[in-house]
Design a protein around this nucleic acid. Structure first.
Lengths: 109, 109
DNA sequence: CGAGGATATGTCAGTTCTGACATCGACACA
DNA sequence: TGTGTCGATGTCAGAACTGACATATCCTCG
């Protein structure tokens, strides 16, 4: 898997509302990163909606607080697999995941 | 990530139409496996619809024919990340991915 | 019967991801 | 001020994943 070092910075820029420049992301990469962002946002939203701390969610996942933080920050070292597991652990159904992805903002240049 | 050795067998059982027993999959695991199956099926469908060989798709992905075969077989060693990359490389848009997931057959016991 | 194309399966060394841990800053409340 | 909770960030050893390769099976043409 190609490492996209800028992903996190860009993700933050986007999440903070600043103008992100995804200049050299191919359409495929943009779609992938956008999907990841949508999922990580969904994890945070669901966790908060359920009044859980990152540590509490981590426990359900047999993971750690730091990894949950990275998930929600769309850290490049977090896999989509882990994001999906987190969502399902938060009670999401496949249709919820589908909605989250569909709602994800496009990162087209 | 917890290894689910039975996943492949079960996946095949399901894909071949035989009665699969997902007896000891938790709802979360079932949702996860089901999602993976939906994505791998989508990869195969799209590839064939575009008249591509597994080798051709592999080349686009900078991967190998054997890995594409494993993707389509929902092999446990294939990550969702890779499946998503394959779908995007096949021209899928996030909304297409969402549809694929939503259409995925439930694996509820 | 070959030969060639497409796909399936097993293996492996190198890379990536993961949980855990340490640490830090922010905030709340006694 | 001190104590506790929460979340962010960096690191690392071990686990999981990856591309590549070898090989095998099935087809479909000659």
């Amino acid at each position: 898997m190609k490492r996209i070092k800028r992903a996190t910075l860009e993700a933050h820029g986007w999440r903070l509302g600043t103008a992100a420049d995804f200049l050299d992301l191919t359409p495929e990469e943009a779609a992938f990163v956008g999907t990841k962002l949508a999922l990580s946002q969904s994890v945070r939203d669901r966790r908060i909606a359920q009044g859980l701390s990152q540590a509490a969610l981590a426990k359900r996942l047999t993971s750690s607080q730091s990894r949950v933080a990275k998930m929600e920050a769309a850290d490049p070292t977090v896999s989509v697999d882990l994001l999906l597991r987190a969502l399902f652990a938060l009670g999401a159904k496949p249709s919820d995941v589908a909605s989250a992805i569909r709602k994800g903002r496009s990162l087209a240049a």
